[in-house]
């Protein structure tokens, strides 16, 4: 079974069918480029994978694990949804950085908050243990018990400290990776579009998603700024990182993708390697689209 397996995804808004049954699969480490004209459902597909939209029908699996199945998850609860969502990362067209946090804080916010949940559960556990003494007589010595509790608490605290340090250095590494080490304390409003998008990429990477999705990452940028973002995305390509890129940059799709999907009217019109789709398109719609895309340049 492939790493990512998408089966029969459909999405309706009322009577409007945006996705009419999408099937594809992706191996680990592959880069998939999705191209197609506006309104063909590319973005909706990405949003379905990230569960910002709930697919009306269909299912998808990641590494053999069922992530979503419309039949079973009609009423998926919030926490379940959140856990599954973390397998996927999403970089938005218009960055959506948090304006009140500086660059480094933007990157560290989510890992910090997710960690907080774990820690508060552990703390609650400790309090429970302490309270239990009131209701149940202690078997061993009292002193011993409290020492043990103290030890556990100290362990928790030192783990916490270690985590914070690790997270901070991880954030710095990520920033270096996107070439913005000097902007760690800058606020999003002080960044150019290209820089903002690179921060957004670092932020998505901080959670180490299995599949990183890009929703037209350069569409909101000036032409001279797209290069720096595409370069970063190109640099992310590695044997272990699976990526899905919705893009209008044909040259980029051609050179980076292992696989290209051309979408039209909510269906996959054509799919294959870049050579197949760009070099020798079979569908008339693909041919027309590619011609138009060339015309633009």
């Amino acid at each position: 079974m492939a790493f990512l397996e998408v089966k029969g995804i459909k999405k309706n808004y009322g009577s409007l069918q945006v996705l009419k049954g999408i099937d594809f699969s992706l191996q680990k480490g592959e880069v998939l480029a999705i191209i197609g004209s506006s309104g063909s459902g590319k973005t909706t597909l990405l949003r379905c994978l990230n569960m910002l939209e709930i697919p009306s029908e269909g299912s998808f699996y990641l590494d053999g694990e069922l992530i979503y199945d419309a039949v079973r998850h009609v009423k998926a609860n919030d926490s379940e949804l959140r856990k599954k969502r973390l397998h996927f990362g999403l970089v938005f067209q218009n960055f959506n950085l948090f304006p009140q946090y500086n660059v480094k804080q933007n990157i560290m916010l989510a890992p910090k908050l997710l960690r907080k949940k774990v820690v508060s559960a552990a703390k609650k556990d400790l309090r429970k243990k302490k309270l239990n003494v009131v209701f149940y007589p202690l078997r061993g010595s009292k002193k011993n018990f409290y020492n043990l509790l103290k030890e556990e608490k100290n362990k928790l605290l030192s783990e916490e400290k270690y985590f914070a340090e690790k997270l901070s250095s991880q954030a710095e590494e990520l920033l270096a990776g996107v070439g913005l080490s000097d902007k760690a304390t800058a606020y999003p409003c002080q960044l150019s579009g290209g820089q903002s998008q690179r921060v957004a990429i670092a932020r998505a990477l901080a959670l180490e998603p299995d599949v990183l999705c890009f929703d037209e990452p350069t569409s909101a940028l000036d032409p001279e700024l797209t290069g720096e973002v595409l370069k970063v995305i190109r640099g992310l390509k590695s044997s272990s990182r699976t990526m899905i890129v919705v893009t209008h940059e044909m040259d980029f799709a051609r050179s980076v993708a292992d696989k290209v999907i051309f979408m039209a009217d909510g269906v996959i019109e054509e799919e294959g390697t870049p050579e197949e789709v760009f070099g020798n398109p079979k569908s008339e719609k693909t041919k027309a689209f590619l011609l138009k895309a060339e015309d633009r340049i």
């Binding site: 910002l52 919030d78 926490s79 969502r85 938005f92 218009n94 916010l109 989510a110 959670l207």
Partner: peptide, 19 residues
């Protein structure tokens, strides 16, 4: 977009609102 960014980062609704 601010809500969605929080959602894809796995935050709860409460965290998104308050943080």
């Amino acid at each position: 977009g601010q809500y969605e960014a929080g959602q894809v980062l796995g935050l709860t609704k409460t965290q998104i609102f308050f943080k």
